[in-house]
Every structure is written in structure tokens, then in C-alpha cells.
């Protein structure tokens, strides 16, 4: 399988503003990334991690300081037009649309910007409005739309040029659960058509549900890339054991075991034991079984736990 997106030693710096000691801020520090054609890659990272910088470079609105980036074999620095023709960008949130116009008028502009005109443009706009479920509201003003409807229009806009590579920046932000389910179905359709998707998100459940692989990024450095399941398996040390009907003295015994980082009882009475080594998990299971506990299970860490473990829980702090 060839790579639709490839970066080699991709570096982007910005001059530090006055008062921050001069020098430079490293937004991307030598990123090597390969996204196979037809796959969905999730890009997870906290605010200021470098996700947006990477997306901007791939969409040609920002030049790299050094290194290379290519989309479908076209270099973003030297073959800008070819990259622009093969990529679609979808933003999240309320911005990025002309609220006083209809979705049809919005899409007609973006289609024209991708060299679609006349009947071909009208046909394409109709198809996309149908596909994202907005054909019934095609004549209404966009500023009366819900956030979820705006997101669907964003998606239609990103697809107007029928791009082979699609960058989705927080695409389900503000969508209701039904719309999110439909969106995930649409992602499946897009990949079945052979498109490559790069999805930046903070929603771990979404990344687990739709991504073939996930890349964790922080401070401009890629920390890990793997399938959501393998990424979680890599951190099997984060495994935890959940059990019902555990007596207080048994809970105390579990807490005393080496390799148990935390053991506590939840509101419903269930006991959750966090272990730091596979051996500790075995010991916990043995102790529970010997105490006559039969309702128990081991749980692999979710992507969210992996994310918090690798990136670190820094609360609201933004990278410098």
C-alpha cells in the first residue's frame, strides 16, 4: 500500500515574541509520518501539540521550516497546485461558512474555487447536500442551522472537489449522538471509496471507532503510532481488574500487594484495582479467586487512558 501522506524530518518553527526571551518556538520538531492510502489516521494531542501546524502544512497554507511533506507524491512546497487539487479540508465549529447565504450558495462558491462550474457544479452540490442530509434545507440561511447541521455542511464543503485526501479538524464537534453515528457511517463510506482521512480530534471514543491507526503528538513530536487496540495493548501494564462482592479485608489485602497502584471501591460497590505489571494482575486475580470472588474481569486501558498516560494529564495547561 502506498502512502497518501508522507513527512520526513518535518520541522516548523516560529520566532518567539518579544518578552519570551527571543529564540524560536518549535511547533513541529522533525516529524516522520506516513499515512497509507485509503486509511483513516487519527491525530491526537493536547492544545498546542502541533496538530494544526501539521494540517496547515499539508494543506499548503504554511511552509515547513525544513524537511519535506508530500500528499499523493506531490511536494507541498514545490507542487502546491497539485496538492491543493488532491486535498480537502474540513474545519470544526461555527466558523468557516457564510451564514447569510444558503448551503447551496456556500457550496457553489467552494465548487467554483475548485474549478467546478455550470451543470457539473449544480450536480455535485445536489449530490453532496443529499449525502449529508441537508437537501431539505438547501434554500435556508446557514445562520439558522444547528451546530451539527453546520458541521455536515463543512463536510460537504470539504468533499466538493472529490478529494483523495481529506483533513478533518474536529469534525464531530457539536453534533448530536445521532448525527455522530451518521458521521461515522459516512467516514466508512469515504474510506470504502479509497479516500485517505487525517482526523484531528480530542474525542477518544471517536478515534477508537473510526481510525485504523492513531498517532499521539505532543510538543511537536510524534510519541506513538499504532492501531487503537495495539496502542492500548502496548500499555498492558495499565490493565485493571474489576470485581463485585469483594469484602473490605480483601480490598485491604489487594491494596497491600506490590504492583498495585490503586485499589478502591466505586459508588455501586464494585472494586477497581489498577496494576502496574502483568505479574501484579495475576496476583490480584489469584487473591480474588481464593477469597471466593467469582464476578470479576480484567479491562484493557481505553485510548483515553493511553492518551493520558503518554501525554500526561496536564489539565488546562497549553504547551509553550
Amino acid at each position: 500500500m502506498t502512502d497518501a501522506v508522507e513527512t520526513r524530518s518535518l520541522r516548523r518553527t516560529f520566532p518567539a515574541r518579544a518578552g519570551r526571551g527571543g529564540g524560536e518556538i518549535v511547533a513541529l520538531g522533525g516529524v516522520d509520518l506516513s499515512i497509507p492510502s485509503g486509511s483513516v489516521r487519527g491525530l491526537l494531542g493536547p492544545n498546542g501539540a502541533g496538530k494544526t501546524t501539521l494540517c496547515k502544512i499539508l494543506s499548503t497554507v504554511l511552509l515547513p521550516s525544513s524537511g519535506t511533506a508530500s500528499v499523493l507524491g506531490h511536494d507541498v512546497r514545490h507542487e502546491t497546485l497539485a496538492v491543493k487539487r488532491s486535498i480537502g479540508v474540513v474545519f470544526g465549529g461555527d466558523r468557516g461558512l457564510y451564514g447569510r447565504l444558503t448551503p447551496r450558495q456556500n457550496l457553489q462558491l467552494w465548487g467554483a474555487l475548485y474549478d467546478l462550474h455550470g451543470r457539473a457544479l449544480s450536480r455535485r452540490v445536489d449530490e453532496l447536500l443529499e449525502r449529508v442530509g441537508l437537501s431539505g434545507r438547501a434554500r435556508d440561511r446557514v445562520d439558522g442551522f444547528s451546530r451539527g447541521m453546520k458541521q455536515r455542511l463543512h463536510l460537504a464543503r470539504g468533499l466538493i472537489s472529490d478529494p483523495r485526501v481529506l483533513i478533518l479538524d474536529e469534525p464531530t464537534s457539536g453534533m448530536d449522538p445521532v448525527a455522530v453515528r451518521d458521521f461515522r457511517g459516512l467516514i466508512g463510506e469515504l474510506t470504502a471509496e479509497g479516500r485517505t482521512l487525517l482526523l484531528t480530534t480530542h474525542d477518544m471514543a471517536e478515534a477508537e471507532a473510526v481510525c485504523d491507526e492513531v498517532t499521539l503528538i505532543d510538543n511537536g513530536v510524534l510519541l506513538a503510532t499504532d492501531t487503537p487496540a495495539r496502542l492500548a495493548a502496548r500499555l498492558s501494564t495499565l490493565e485493571r481488574v474489576e470485581a463485585d462482592g469483594v469484602a473490605d479485608d480483601v480490598l485491604a489485602g489487594l491494596s497491600a500487594l506490590s504492583g498495585v497502584s490503586k485499589a478502591h471501591r466505586e459508588t455501586g460497590g464494585r472494586v477497581v484495582v489498577h496494576t502496574t505489571t502483568p505479574a501484579a494482575t495475576s496476583e490480584v486475580l489469584a487473591l480474588l479467586v481464593s477469597a471466593g470472588v467469582t464476578a470479576l474481569r480484567t479491562v484493557r486501558p481505553s485510548l483515553e487512558e493511553v492518551y493520558l498516560h503518554v501525554i500526561g494529564d496536564r489539565g488546562m495547561l497549553v504547551s509553550p
Partner: peptide, 18 residues
């Protein structure tokens, strides 16, 4: 402010003509 400037520049269209 609408957030469309970058998306517009990212299209193959000639921005001066637009």
C-alpha cells in the same frame, strides 16, 4: 474572522481573481 481565508487560499483558485 469568518475562518474562511485559509480555506480559500488552500484552494487551487487564483486568489487575486477571486
Amino acid at each position: 474572522s469568518r475562518g474562511t481565508l485559509e480555506a480559500m487560499v488552500a484552494t487551487p483558485a487564483s486568489f487575486p481573481v477571486v
